[in-house]
Simulated assay, not measured.
Amino acid sequence: MSKNSKIQWTDHSWPIVTGCIPKSAGCANCYAIKDSWRLSHNPNPKIREIYTGTVEKKGETLRWTGLIKYHPDRLKWVEQWKKPARIFVSNMADLFSDDVPEWFLDLTWAYMAVYKRHTYQVLTKCPDRLNAYLNDPNTPQRIAMWINAELDINKHPGNDYPPLPLNNWAYDKFSWPLSNVWVGVSVENEVVTHRIKTLLETPATIRFISCEPLLGPVELRPHYLYEDYQESYRDNEKLDWVIVGGESGPNARVCQVKWIQSIVNQCEQTGTPIFVKQLGSNSNLEVKGKGDNLEEWPQSLRIQEFPTIL
C-alpha cells in the first residue's frame, strides 16, 4: 500500500492502473517504467502480477509494452486510509489512457465521492479524454449507479439498468464536479501547452499543471493566468495551481534554473499558487541528487504552495 509518498506535493500514491504508453517528450525518462520493471520481478506474486507484462527490456533499454492493467481491488485503499490526505491518483500510469475502460473511471470517481475526506490529485497527459469524461452529462448518473451498488462490482446492474431518478439519494452524496478532486495536465515544454486549453475547458474545482520534468521555457501568463487573482479564481480560463521541477536520475536532461524562475515569477505576478518541487539532477547549479534540498536553492525559488478552495 503506497502510503507516505516521497512526492512532496502529495501524501499517498494510489497506483490503480499499471502499464503506460508514452505521449510526449516528458515520458522519456519516466520513473514509473523503472519501478514497474523492478516490481514485475518482486518475489511477492501478488505484487509481481500487478506489473508483469507492462515493461520489456531490450538490451539495456526498458520500454513499455503497451499493456494496460487496471486494479479494482486497489480502489479500496482509500477506505483504509482513515486520516484525510492528499492522494496522487494512478501515479504509475495514466488513468485516462484509451485502454482504461469507462466503467473503471466511473468506479474510481464513485470511490472519490464516497471517501470525500481525502483530496484526490489526478494528473494526465490525455486531456481530451479527461475533458470528454467530465463534460459528459451522463457521467454523474453512472457514478451514482456505482454508489447505489455500494461500490460492489457484483451488485452493479450493468449498462442496461434503467436511468436513476434525478432525486435519487446518490445525487445528494456529491456535487458536480467533485469538490475534492483536482485535475491537471503535464506541460514539460511549449510544444504541449495546448493541453492547458483543453484542461481549462474541463469542469473541476481545482485545475493545475505539472511542469515536470521541465525541458524548456514555458510562457503561461498571457493565456492562462490573470492579474486579478481573487476576482478571477473561479473563471473557467484560470489555472489554480502550478507545479514545477527539473528531471532527476542519471540520464536527466538539462533544466536551467532560469526556466523555473520564469514560471515562479509569472505565478507570483498573478497570485497563482506555485510549488517548486526540485531543481533536477542536471541544472546549472551545483546541487546534490535530484536537487530537492531547499537549502541549496536560491531564496526566490523556495516556494511550495498549495491552492486554496474558496
Rank of each mutant, 00 (worst) to 15 (best):
A113R: 06
A113E: 05
V114N: 12
Y115W: 06
H118Y: 07
H118A: 05
H118L: 01
H118M: 02
H118F: 01
T119V: 05
Y120G: 05
Y120V: 03
Y120R: 05
V122W: 01
V122R: 03
V122D: 05
T124G: 08
K125W: 04
C126Q: 13
D128G: 14
D128K: 14
R129C: 09
R129L: 04
L130R: 06
L130F: 05
L130G: 10
N131E: 10
N131V: 02
A132D: 05
Y133F: 12
N135T: 13
T139C: 01
R142D: 14
R142I: 12
I143D: 09
W146T: 09
I147A: 03
N148K: 09
N148W: 00
A149W: 00
A149T: 06
L151F: 00
L151D: 10
D152M: 00
I153D: 15
I153S: 15
N154S: 14
H156W: 14
H156Q: 12
P157R: 11
P157D: 11
N159P: 13
N159K: 08
N159W: 09
Y161W: 14
P163C: 08
P163S: 14
P165T: 05
N168G: 08
N168V: 05
W169Y: 15
W169C: 10
A170Y: 04
A170S: 09
Y171I: 02
D172C: 05
K173Q: 15
W176F: 04
L178M: 07
L178E: 10
N180W: 00
W182C: 08
W182K: 03
W182F: 04
G184P: 12
G184D: 13
V185F: 02
S186A: 13
V187F: 02
V187W: 03
V187H: 02
E188F: 03
V191L: 01
V191T: 12
V192Q: 12
H194I: 00
H194M: 01
I196G: 11
I196E: 13
I196N: 11
K197G: 13
E201P: 03
E201T: 14
T202N: 00
T205W: 01
I206W: 02
R207W: 04
F208Q: 09
I209Y: 01
C211E: 09
L214Q: 07
L214T: 06
L214C: 09
L215M: 06
G216Y: 03
E219H: 12
R221E: 13
Y224H: 10
L225N: 11
E227S: 15
Q230P: 13
Q230T: 12
